[in-house]
Amino acid sequence: MKNHVYRPLFLVIAFVVAVLIAREIVVPEDFGTHEAGYMYGWHRKGNEQEWKDFKVKYQGKDYCKLCHQDKVDKISQTPHVIINCENCHGPAVKMARVDGKIHWKNPTYTKHGEDTFENHIDRTREQCLRCHAKLPYKGSGREWVRGINNTEHNPDMECVMCHNPHSPGFG
């Protein structure tokens, strides 16, 4: 065969070999089809653990109870027992804003720090209205919650000025 055939052929072979070598280096060892099979299972196995190690923020009421048993006892005697503490108090994790980015720290049993904004309590009227704004939506869960007319029921006041969320009503 002539030289003009061999030269591009060598180029192509060199390219294929280069791609194969690069593939061997770039593709991680744990990449392949795993349990979910050929169609849905192609992935880097190590990523599963990376997701499992993702930081947990919401700890749940049982965690809050470890220190705040009295508060949990109090709210447990009211209809508000169904609400997770962290819905108003924020997730029980220390967090800090550094250069505009949120950094999560390990939850601790120690006193809540001052340089952080964790446990930033949402006392706004808007927070209460999420459930307690009366809406004419028959068939939705809102029907079963005692609601107020937002424009008529002391519109300029914060709810917490009269109502204690831990013992709603006038307790």
């Binding site: 947990v56 923020k57 919401y58 819905n87 924020g90 997730p91 949120i102 999420r130 939705s140 809102r142």
Partner: peptide, 19 residues
């Protein structure tokens, strides 16, 4: 869906939890 009151606290919690 009968139980949902449309309070949106699930969406808020999700955004905080999952950054």
């Amino acid at each position: 869906t009968h139980k949902c009151t449309g309070c949106g606290l699930c969406v808020k919690a999700c955004k905080l939890e999952n950054e």
